[in-house]
Write a protein that binds this DNA or RNA. Structure first.
Lengths: 266, 266
DNA sequence: CAATTGCTTTCATAGAATGAAAGTGTCTTA
DNA sequence: TAAGACACTTTCATTCTATGAAAGCAATTG
């Protein structure tokens, strides 16, 4: 069984020589750049930031626009509405996502805490499903937010067992994405990760203040995991012990999802 | 001022000869096909349905996968998690979407009904923003759902003023998308559309039973509108008169958004 | 065990993608 | 108002990428 998600390199995959499908890669680069900026972009900025010529960038934008992936107002471009049906399709049809919802609901019901599913994407992670517990989390964190791998239980647990080389790339990726200071080092990262032999990660006040989390990765025999599930609670509604008491439950859920993933045959 | 969204043709744009960026167009075709199916697809099916060779399809999938737009389990492909951050970017940064939220909130507060923003995408429309009113709608309709242009107030109002030729394309598009029976005709469609001179559309039990709606298009001087806002209520909480009483308020909101759109300068 | 089926790789070729440069329009400035 | 600057758009010859036929594998089935 082979499960493959976004490769570590994602966009910034400069290493490989074959680099197939140049025009498609460049188009996705432009698409990513439009997301990076939080406001509509001019053609010349996009071309410069993506390192391609104006005509090429323009042609790419026109095709993306034809498919609704990009919208244009006057001379500025932005992400278009076609991403909404795509996201809906992902949420409704992805086997792991749909399988996880009832599992997370059960975990949330049994522990009273908020249960979430995260997926790794490149050198970041993304919140994919959230089922609220009894104590609501104060901060809003809607689906699809890009979060660091290096901060928070659900991120760190995805890095358990990674090679030093890979961790070094993660460090660079986190800095590049602005999640960590430029001085962030491999040693600092390793100090945060769970002890070897521990299958869960814990965080308190790490990514958000006043929030405690425990997380477990969904196993992918041999490979690095790319998904994790977490229990989260505001500090006033839980203690470290209380959260960690939920770990067995969480572990059971992760195992169930892991099995489901293995057994998936279409 | 020029606002351009997805062209009417969208994916099925076979007419044009120049057809630039073939590989990119084909990739987006594959991406669309993955959304069409509600479950993971095998390579050979994708290749056949998109009318391209196996190697080409495979190469496209690999690149999309590198960017997280596609995931693979064993030999099946599906939409990947990268669409979530993209959708988030759209919802949070699109000028019209962000501008509409407070406006819709105000309309919902004043009328007590559910207020929504729709965007046209090809020959369909998509729910982009929804602010619930006092009486909740029984059916769930999350963001990003593809709905017909030919059914429901928010769809029909987008077609007011369209040429017969364009309406004919809309008819074909609705049939192709499975929203209408194959026998659906231009005459039938025209019978549903609001009287010429009317700037709003009304629907009762059209798209969903037990639901009443009025909708107004957001004007784009000269061009066909591509966005509309609607007031919706379950039948037991409103009458036709009650809904139509909200039209002036809705009209004011649409005008405000139209102005905002015009004034948008980045 | 043979045969079918479907995925993957290779490779020569066609033609698509590319950027320089010219063209066009718009906004700014004197 | 005119001249200049700036940014977008189009054109076109060249390069190299994208392409599918066919062969090579792998897995599944009879």
């Amino acid at each position: 069984m082979t499960v493959t998600n976004a490769q570590p390199g994602t966009a910034a995959d400069d290493g490989g020589k074959p680099s197939n499908m140049r025009s498609l890669s460049r188009a996705l680069e432009v698409f990513a750049e439009l997301q990076r900026a939080d406001r509509p972009q001019r053609l010349s900025d996009l071309a410069r930031n993506c390192g391609m010529s104006l005509p090429t960038t323009l042609r790419i934008l026109r095709v993306l626009q034809d498919f609704g992936m990009v919208s244009q107002t006057d001379k500025t471009y932005r992400i278009g509405p076609a991403v909404l049906p795509a996201a809906r399709s992902y949420i409704e049809n992805d086997p792991l996502v749909t399988a996880s919802r009832p599992v997370l609901q059960q975990v949330a019901a049994q522990t009273g805490m908020t249960a979430s599913l995260y997926t790794r994407l490149g050198f970041e992670r993304i919140l994919v499903v959230r089922v609220d517990g009894d104590a609501p989390l104060r901060y809003d964190m809607p689906l699809g937010k890009r979060l660091p791998l290096t901060v928070g239980a659900a991120g760190k647990v995805l890095l358990a067992g990674a090679s030093d080389q890979h961790l070094q790339e993660v460090v660079q990726g986190a800095v590049a994405a602005g999640h960590e200071k430029p001085t962030f080092s491999l040693a600092e990262l390793k100090a945060r990760l769970p002890e070897p032999g521990t299958d869960y990660a814990y965080s308190a006040d790490e990514r958000a203040t006043g929030v405690l989390s425990v997380a477990i990765a969904i196993n992918r025999s041999g490979l690095l995991p790319s998904e994790s599930i977490a229990l989260t609670s505001p500090v006033e509604a839980a203690t470290e012990e209380g959260l960690k008491a939920g770990v067995p439950e969480l572990r059971r859920a992760a195992n169930r999802l892991s099995e489901l993933l293995e057994g998936t045959v279409y």
